[in-house]
Design a protein around this nucleic acid. Structure first.
Lengths: 252, 252
DNA sequence: CCATCTTTGTGCACGCGTTCACAAAGACAT
DNA sequence: ATGTCTTTGTGAACGCGTGCACAAAGATGG
């Protein structure tokens, strides 16, 4: 999620809830897989299972886009692929720059998922002069000095930051000043941006820490169950097993 | 936040809301930075600004952990660092295996954020025999055949999947069968796991698609403001439904 | 044309998360 | 002590997201 002061409170984009928007790519991926298998139609139940969500949720999500299904039959796969692609803006070409070509930046440049759907790596940018000209994923790395020119000439509006944390804010400001209005940030820092600029953050270590929290909890409960005398702060569970109703983590 | 969401439904672990848990690492990072600058105390307002959240939210988050602040003064930085670390389970050592040492896997292995906080890369695993023995980030890659043995001997409970999508589910099943109960998945697939196993997903292309959605909306609004009445991006109806499609832009 | 069956689309209720606003608590000066 | 000032901790209201459950819509068969 965007971490800085990033979200405009009002203006629910055309009435489509943010939670729904976040799931559309998931549906799109499942639909694409079906399309490749030449499946003509799919029911909300089947598609929901493939995407790992509740079928009622999926139907409600689709209802925000319009009535694209046929009662008694389901959804036309090809048609839905097109509608969701259009809704997400994937029918147009999005030039993207990646700043910071270290291990992660190189991985991103090589990542097939980008090119596959509307996104095109317009340039790779790094501050290290030694990197300049060196090709990564078939694209020559350019020096940070060229940043503004590259963005302007290619009409780039989406930037990916894969620099060390220390450089991120500065890079961000240059990107924004040059005209970028959407940023995907991999650096472990909170970016501050002006209104009108979207920031989404991907933080590897945060994800791991969240997993560790749950892992610890699981371990604690186990220990408590095995040795009732141990004082591990767990909620009193009326005698029966600890947390008897832990739901499936992911329907998947 | 990263990710695609992969939410855990209810089950407020020990009464701490999931949303709060997801923010604790953020607070921890901000606090660590303050600690390194030897700042003794910090107010909720300052810390909230540093973490990029609302101060009331931060105070409520902390209230779930206990009353660690001093009214009229703020929070003791060192004390809070310790409390949050303990809460997240970072005071113990978490051995982690990374499966799939491609570009991304290598980037993860080199990522400093892991080792810095409780996490230790116990092993790198890849299916390619040619990779075996080759050191990445100073750790020799081991073949997938060794997976079960490695997990067992190191007591690994957290696994990171950085394989291609096609291999992810199979790798996941082997990890789970071998005893892993928390998985961080970078492969663009929905993993299905048994109850009791946590999965968090990080999907680069989904994040980009969400940005594209907002970007498209911004562009549409701009155009609509500049030239009211103009129909942006008329979808070309290819065969299907006769419904006169909704324009991609809301009416000015 | 009618009956039946399937599946969508959605009204509704519920619970979680966010935010406001303020009383309580402590620091500090007088 | 007493009063003032700062900042925490939280009750309460509100809004969003989720999931149930069902009526409406269309397909299908007789």
């Amino acid at each position: 999620m965007a971490t800085g002061r990033t979200h405009r409170p009002a203006t629910r984009s055309r009435g489509i809830p943010e939670a729904t928007v976040a799931r559309l790519p998931l549906y799109l991926r499942a639909l694409t897989a079906l399309s490749e298998r030449s499946v003509p139609t799919v029911s909300s139940e089947e598609l929901a299972a493939a995407a790992g969500v509740n079928s009622a949720k999926l139907r409600k999500d689709f209802s925000y886009l319009g009535s694209y299904g046929t009662r008694g039959v389901g959804y036309d796969v090809e048609y839905l692929v097109y509608q969701i692609s259009r809704e997400l803006g994937l029918t147009q070409d999005w030039p993207v720059v990646i700043v910071g070509i270290g291990n992660l930046g190189a991985a991103l440049a090589n990542y097939g998922g980008f090119a596959s759907r509307g996104f095109r790596v317009a340039a790779l940018i790094d501050a290290d002069p030694a990197m300049a000209g060196k090709p990564v994923a078939g694209i020559p790395v350019q020096h940070t000095d060229e940043l503004e020119k590259i963005i302007d000439e290619n009409g780039v509006s989406i930037g990916v930051i894969a620099t060390p944390a220390g450089a991120a804010q500065q890079v961000c400001e240059r990107l924004v000043a040059a005209g970028v209005t959407s940023i995907l940030n991999f650096a472990p820092t909170v970016l501050s941006v002006p209104d009108g600029v979207d920031v989404r953050k991907v933080d590897l270590s945060i994800e791991l820490q969240i997993l560790a929290f749950h892992e610890q909890r699981k371990a604690g409960e186990e220990a408590a169950a095995a040795e009732p005398g141990a004082v591990i702060q767990t909620p009193k569970e009326s005698g029966k097993g600890p947390d008897g109703d832990v739901p499936a983590v992911m329907p998947a």
